[in-house]
Simulated assay, not measured.
Amino acid sequence: MSSTIKHAVSELSIPVPWGEIRGKVWGPDHGRPVLCLHGWADNCGTFNTLIPLLPKECRYVAVDLAGHGLSSHRPAGVPYTFPANVADVRRVIDGLHWTRFSIIGHSMGGNIAAMFSALYPEMVDAVVLLDCFGFVPTDSIFIFKVIRQGMDDVLQFEKKTEEKKRVYTYKKAVERLLAANPTLSEQSVHILLERGLVQVDEAGFVFSRDLRVNVKNIVPISLEQSLEMQLRIQASVLVVLGDKGFGAAPESNQLKLLQGYRERNVSLKLGEKKYINIICRKKKTLKLPWVVLSLIKGFSSLKFSESEDRHSQYVCEKLQMQGMPKGHEGSRLVAGVLDHETLKY
Score class of each variant (00 low, 15 high):
H7M: 12
V9T: 15
E11I: 09
V16T: 06
R22M: 11
G23P: 08
D29Y: 11
H30P: 01
R32D: 12
R32G: 09
H38D: 11
H38Y: 04
G39W: 01
W40K: 00
D42E: 15
C44T: 12
T46K: 08
I51K: 01
L53T: 00
P55G: 09
E57F: 10
E57V: 11
A62S: 08
V63G: 07
H68D: 11
R74L: 14
D88C: 05
D88Q: 12
V92Y: 00
G95S: 07
H97A: 15
F101P: 03
F101C: 08
I103A: 02
S107V: 00
G109Y: 01
A114R: 00
S117A: 12
E122S: 12
M123E: 15
D125G: 05
A126H: 05
V127A: 00
L129M: 15
D131H: 02
C132W: 02
G134Y: 01
P137D: 04
T138M: 09
S140T: 14
F142W: 05
F142Y: 15
I143Y: 06
I143N: 05
F144S: 10
Q149P: 01
G150A: 11
G150W: 02
M151P: 00
D152G: 04
F157I: 03
F157R: 14
F157E: 14
K159A: 12
K164W: 01
A173K: 05
V174K: 14
R176W: 13
R176K: 15
L178V: 08
A179F: 08
N181C: 06
P182R: 15
L184H: 09
H190W: 02
L192V: 06
L193T: 15
L197N: 10
A203G: 04
A203C: 08
I218P: 07
V219C: 07
L223G: 07
L227R: 02
E228G: 04
M229L: 09
I233C: 01
Q234V: 01
K244D: 03
A249L: 12
N253Q: 13
N253E: 10
N253Y: 06
L258G: 03
E263Q: 15
E263W: 10
L270Y: 12
K273P: 04
I276A: 13
I278S: 13
I279A: 04
I279P: 02
R281K: 12
K283T: 11
K284W: 02
K284R: 14
W290Q: 14
V291N: 07
V291S: 10
L295F: 11
F304P: 04
E308P: 01
H311Y: 09
Y314K: 15
Y314W: 15
E317N: 10
L319W: 06
P325Y: 03
K326P: 03
G327C: 04
L333S: 12
D339A: 11
H340N: 13
E341H: 05
T342M: 10
